[in-house]
Amino acid sequence: MEITRRQLLTRCTQLLVLTGTAAAALEKTGQAPGPDDTYHMADHWWGMMIDIEKCIGCGNCVRACSKENNVPEGYFRTWVERYQVTEDWEHPKVDSPDGAIHGFPANTDPNVKSFFVPKLCNHCADSPCVQVCPVGATFVSPDGVVLVDPDYCLGCRYCIQACPYGCRYFHPEKHIADKCTLCYHRITQGLTTACCEACPTGARRLCDLKDPNDPVHEFLRNNMVHVLKPQMATGAKVYYNNLDGSVR
C-alpha cells in the first residue's frame, strides 16, 4: 500500500521536474515561459530576512548555493563572515575562510563579542550596479530581483565596481558578471532559495514583501532591523535582525 502511494507521489514529483526540463529546453530558444505559467511577476517583491542570533556559521548556505548554481570555485554568491569585536569597535576582526564553504574553525576568542554574518546580494531596489550597466544586461526584475542577462552582458565589470557589498564577480568561464539570482529559477516555481532550504536554523528566510501573509511583515514590525550600509541608499532588501553596528 505504502509503496503504491510512494510511486504515485514519485510520478507527481517527476512531473514537477519535467516542467523543469521543459524550462531547460527554453534555455536554448531563450523564450519566456508560456501562457500556462502561473507565476505573475507583478504579484511579488522578493527579499530576505536574516536573523544574526540564529546563524551558527555552518556554511550550509554557501555549499548549497555553490551546488545549486554551479558557482565557480573561489567565487561567492553568498558567504558567511565571522566578526570578533573588541572595545575598539570601529576595527573588528573579520574573517571568512573560503567564504565559509567549509564552515569556521573553532578558534573564536571567547573573551570578545563574536557572531556570524551571512552575506548575499541585497537585491537593492535602487541598485547601483543596475544604474551603471551600459547596455541593460543587468536589471531589477519586476518582482524585485537583481539579475544578469548572460547572453547580453559585455563583461565590462562596471557593475562589479559599483556594488558596495562585493556581491558580484567576473565569471572565469562565461566571461560575464555573475551574482546571486535569489534562486530565481526556484522562487518562480514556488520553492525557496537553495541557501534558505539548506539553512538548518532558519537564520535566513526568503520573503515576499507583496504577500500580506508573509512573516516578513511581523519580522520588520517586531525586531530591531538593519540593512547593510544604509548610507549608500541602495534600497537593500536583505533585512538583518540584531545586526551589530560594526558590521560592514
Binding site: Q131, V132, C133, P134, V135, G136, A137, L154, C156, Y158
Partner: peptide
Amino acid sequence: PLQLHLGHPERSFEMYLTPHRTSAMA
C-alpha cells in the same frame, strides 16, 4: 584597450543599440 578588456568584445556594439540612460559608461 576597452575592447581588449571586455569579456565579450563582440557584444560591445550593444552600447550603441541599447544604451542605458542611467549609465555613465553607456
